[in-house]
Design a protein around this nucleic acid. Structure first.
Length: 987
RNA sequence: GCGCUCGUGGUGGAACUGGUAGACACGCAGGAUUUAGGUUCCUGUGCCUCACGGCAUGCGGGUUCGAGUCCCGCCGAGCGCACCA
């Protein structure tokens, strides 16, 4: 590049970088982006921005999903959401709001640990270094974050409170009957476990299960602990869990893909019985579903949460079945019952067989010694006895991986158990099968099969030649060979006591449930797909549990005043991982090796005694479950957040959110939360759960953490592949445009390559970093480009060569204020001409609306239009360019500040009120009216903006072109929308 | 298979409650500056046609004076769920 040809004061990348560094320094020194708290350690109750009063609109809390400081660095896709929130917040500050916007780091967890293991360094070392890199990159991009509120989940001051919240959850139970604390009403809330103990001790609540009838005080310590574990919201469970040998840890259901592999690393996951910490999130299933209505979230995310929770209402029905004589179970020879869950109890009369999951415990008890008379060959699986057939099938099912099961999904397999159950409605004997299309993990692990109204049952019935009875009348055009799952009148559904015939599905359901309940044969039931959250990990890099164990194996919480339980520095922090396929391996927590830390002497109220520390750690979701609360009051060492501060920032508001149903109550929460859709059922579900527990226990006034959520789209990039399909370096590809106007073709090293759109990443050879773009154009250009690419929610491809468009815009703006040769101000103090003035006001109005609606792309387009107009003037009036500088400042903050200061203002424009549009100048005196004939534009006329309908009609019909087109015929109809449109329908 | 979202120039995208389709930007073409390239600036640019004019928002219907926008049916793409009883 030849510098001599470039004017010395041109807005180049070098000048932009100098300006940017200057303002970043100044913002930091002046604490420009500090927001004001009403109480707590940051309290400034007299600050004017608090304005007194309790206005819902004078403050705003905006959050990005906080980043994971990865070692691989940022690419241009990462900062998209950050730039959007920063732009939004900068705009909101100029409207006078007290804006809270900061950013911390989600720094515990597997990737950080894996990176450390790979590079042979301690996770804390690598994580802290990565955070420094990250902070520098964010600063380089001009983020207006409030730095004093930033923290990382690995800070002991922070995880002290993560542990504290864990203890709150551990020390509570869910009382279904207690009145809700919510203004929305309802029942059910978490209560302290001490209140449960008090009820047990007083005898006002009966002890559960095998302890029924005994007095609380008579139970041993171990028995008491065991009882309480059945109630606690955080509890130890020995249920089957997801064991992932390849990662050396157990995982939550949410971290396992539908293919039965780990979401991270894609390793196989096995079901193992292991004793693990669980969170009783299922107690909140209903509220987690119902409260989605009160949130302003993308429907995509709310449906994903609804699907994941999987609430379905129906009935459980008991089908009597004889116990087999050969069964070794107690009470053999007697009567057992198969309990099924169905969402269609109205079809009970059509239940012609039953199916148990292979793992169903009742299977062993009902299998008779021999096949009943006349059992069909196809039902036996070729086995001599039912026991042999069932055992064979169970073996087969157990060895099938989830992937294989899925591959066989549509082929129905199974065997007859030899047993018959009684359909309680028809009294008929129905055969009982074992088949793997019924899953043990859902409902009761058994179904009544209703082939007439369920396609899966129909397929099974057809495969095994079982009877099919339709109990809902299908419409005439319904195919003969398919189940009918739709709405229709019940048929074939009566016995001596009850008839459903003729009733619609809902009425039939209600009547049969009533009948079943009266007879003690069943009851209305709600089931959920959601399972309790597996909360422990066998990993080093996570929050230690604040739990110790005594010699009887009873757990004790570490007293609050001894928190945090700090993660010890150990020489060997790597997890014990195994061959990914080694299902028989067992987890081993790295902390268990730290003997000096594990063995501890504590005084928990009965004198100093020896304890063993819990050696599992928390999953990385723990830290992100509540960081929104800590941003509010990060320096508070008395509470996780001061209640007044919490109420001020995220307490419930007067108005429910947009789109909430009639009568909904605002749940409170962060005003705007922006992040990727990948957290739809992980972080966002867990955080909601924790927040609700804290609400129930009275620690927060808000019922939900995030009132409004937006998923930013991903920035992708073009991927180019050679003839073999391998990606080639995108930066080296040459484009060849088609002179005829057709699509371009592409070559790499002379060879043709194909273009597609894909994720940015090393493996696709299309990485572009913000650092390169900042070096070539400056951070402001980068920000403007990212915001101009399209709507925030949309996926779009990165195109480096298009960045220059945003660069030219800022350069032109600069040139409208500063002389490129001399650096002198070039603005004139002369007043604006009328056209310019009207354009300025229209732009102000439009840009304000666009910023409010987070449509930065169209805001930028409007500013470019104004700027292009100013460029054409002989001299740029100060009165026109000052509002433009203010408008551009949220997206291009450094350039905004610099021009503002060169225009003679001393103070930062961060809080300078956004320009106001004069309504009188928004309407033009004359407008162009289009005249259509049959909806097609045929002519245009200039008319006064306040023209009357009649006059407009007259003038439109009188134009030369329209009279010509009408050819003297009287129009049949004339639609007038004054002043902009007339549509003529000829006779 | 089911559900949701979405299909607009060579490209990214505009178009508020139905009312001038293609704002703004990239690219491309021509021109100015420059010894030249690059930078910067100016002009043009949906398609067809010499033109008058016609055709255009995935395809086919419908509602309406008027449809990118609303309704129905296809086709295509993306995401989610996937034997959930």
């Amino acid at each position: 590049m030849n510098d001599t040809t470039i004017p010395p004061h041109r807005y180049t990348a070098e000048l932009a970088s100098r300006i940017e560094a200057h303002w970043q320094e100044r913002w930091e020194q002046e604490g420009t982006f500090r927001s004001v708290n009403p109480a707590g350690p940051f309290a400034e109750p007299d600050h004017p921005r608090l304005r007194g009063g309790d206005g819902d609109d004078d403050h705003l809390f905006v959050m990005d999903m906080f980043p994971y400081p990865s070692g691989t660095g940022l690419h241009v896709g990462h900062p998209l959401g950050f730039i959007a929130t920063d732009t939004y917040c900068r705009f909101q500050r100029t409207t006078g709001r007290n804006v809270l916007h900061t950013m911390g780091f989600d720094a515990f967890g597997l990737p950080a640990e894996q990176y450390a293991v790979q590079t042979g360094q301690h996770p804390r070392t690598t994580t802290e270094r990565n955070m420094e890199v990250y902070r520098a990159q964010l600063r380089r991009l001009g983020m207006g974050h409030e730095l004093r509120r930033s923290f990382a989940t690995i800070d002991p001051d922070y995880y002290r409170w993560t542990q504290w919240i864990f203890l709150q959850i551990y020390d509570s139970w869910y009382d279904e009957d207690a009145p809700s604390r919510s203004a929305a009403g309802g029942a059910g809330r978490a209560r302290p476990i001490s209140e449960l103990v008090a009820e047990f001790a007083a005898g006002s609540r009966p002890l559960p299960g095998e302890h029924a009838g005994r007095a609380w005080a008579d139970l041993t310590r171990v028995e008491q602990a065991d009882v309480l574990d059945r109630y606690r919201l955080a509890y130890l469970s020995a249920a089957p869990v997801n064991w992932c040998p390849g990662l050396g840890t157990v995982l939550s259901n949410e971290e396992v893909t539908s293919e039965g592999r780990s979401e991270r690393g894609n390793f196989p996951v096995f079901r193992r019985n292991l004793s693990q910490w669980m969170m009783r999130i299922t107690a909140y299933a209903d509220r987690l579903v119902d409260d989605l209505d009160r949130l302003d979230w993308p429907t995509k995310v709310t449906t994903m949460q609804r699907n994941w929770i999987g609430r379905s209402t129906g009935a459980t029905v008991r089908f009597p079945v004889p116990r087999a004589d050969s069964s070794e179970a107690a009470g053999s020879g007697g009567e057992a019952a198969i309990e099924v869950f169905t969402t269609r109890p109205d079809t009970l009369f059509g239940a012609t067989f039953m199916v148990l999951a292979p793992e169903h415990p009742l299977v062993e008890e009902i299998v008779p010694a021999a096949w009943p008379e006349g059992t069909r060959e196809a039902w036996t699986g070729g086995a001599a006895t039912p026991a042999e057939a069932v055992a064979g099938y169970q073996r087969e099912a157990s060895t099938k991986s989830d992937v294989e099961r899925q591959a066989d999904a549509r082929t129905k397999t199974g065997v007859f158990t030899g047993a018959f159950a009684t359909n309680p409605a028809t009294g008929q004997q129905v055969p009982v099968f074992v088949a793997d299309y019924v899953l043990m993990g859902y409902g009761t692990g058994a179904i009544m099969a209703v082939p007439g109204q369920d396609q899966r049952d129909w397929d099974y019935a057809t495969a095994f030649d079982l009877p099919i009875v339709r109990t809902v009348q299908p419409p005439a055009d319904h195919p003969e060979d398919e189940a009918f799952t739709g709405e229709g009148p019940a048929i074939n559904s009566s016995n001596e006591e009850i008839s459903l015939d003729g009733l619609g599905v809902d009425d039939a359901k209600a009547r049969i449930i009533g009948w079943l309940q009266d007879r003690g044969l069943g009851r209305e039931t709600v089931t959920y797909r959601l399972r309790d959250w597996l909360f422990s990990r066998q990993r080093y890099w996570g929050e230690p549990f604040p739990i110790v164990w005594d010699e009887d194996g009873v757990a004790h919480p570490v007293p609050e005043d001894q928190l945090p339980v700090e993660l010890p520095d150990v020489p060997d922090y790597s997890p014990r991982t195994y061959d990914p396929q080694d299902a028989g391996s067992a987890p081993e927590a790295p902390l268990a090796r730290a003997n000096d830390w594990v063995e501890v002497e504590l005084d928990l109220g009965d004198g100093p005694r020896r304890y063993r520390r819990e050696t599992n750690t928390m999953p990385n979701w723990a830290g992100s479950c509540w960081y929104h609360l800590r941003y509010l009051d990060p320096a508070n060492d008395q509470a996780l957040v001061d209640p007044e501060v919490e109420r001020y920032w995220i307490g419930p508001r007067q108005q429910p959110v947009a789109g909430a149903p009639e009568g909904a109550v605002d749940p409170g929460g962060v005003d705007l939360y922006i992040g990727g859709v990948e957290h739809a059922v992980l972080h966002l579900l867990y955080a909601r759960f924790w927040h609700k527990v804290l609400f129930d226990l009275g620690h927060v006034s808000s019922e939900e953490p995030f009132r409004r959520l937006i998923n930013q789209g991903m920035i992708e990039a073009y991927v180019y592949r050679d003839a073999r399909g391998f990606p080639v370096p995108a930066a080296e590809v040459e484009e060849h445009t088609d002179p005829a106007g057709g699509p371009s073709t592409f070559t790499w090293q002379g060879e043709p390559v194909t273009q597609e759109q894909g994720k940015i990443g090393k493996s696709l050879k299309n990485v572009v970093t913000p650092d390169e773009i900042c070096a070539d154009y400056g951070a402001d250009t980068f920000r403007v480009y990212e915001m101009s690419m399209g709507p925030l929610e949309q996926y779009r491809p990165w195109e480096t060569r298009a960045v220059v468009g945003s660069y030219r815009f800022l350069q032109r703006l600069w040139r409208n204020v500063v002389d490129e040769e001399t650096g002198e101000l070039v603005v004139t103090e002369e007043p604006m001409d009328e056209v310019t003035e009207r354009l300025v006001h229209r732009t102000v109005e439009g840009v304000r609306h666009d910023y409010e609606g987070l449509r930065v792309n169209t805001a930028v387009a409007k500013m470019i239009e104004l700027n292009n107009h100013l460029t054409k003037l002989d001299a740029v009036p100060r009165a026109a360019v000052e509002p433009l500088v203010q408008m551009v400042a949220p997206v291009a903050p450094h350039l905004g500040e610099e021009l503002w200061s060169r225009l003679g203002h001393e103070r930062s424009l961060a809080y300078e009120p956004f320009p106001a549009a004069d309504p009188a100048l928004l309407v033009d005196e004359t407008v162009t009216c289009v005249i259509q004939v049959r909806g097609k534009v045929r002519d245009r006329i200039e008319v006064p903006a306040d023209i009357t309908e009649d006059e407009l009609r007259e003038r439109a019909l009188a134009t030369e072109r329209i009279t010509e087109l009408l050819g003297g015929v009287e129009p049949r109809k004339v639609i007038v929308r004054a002043p902009k449109l007339v549509n003529v329908v000829p006779g």
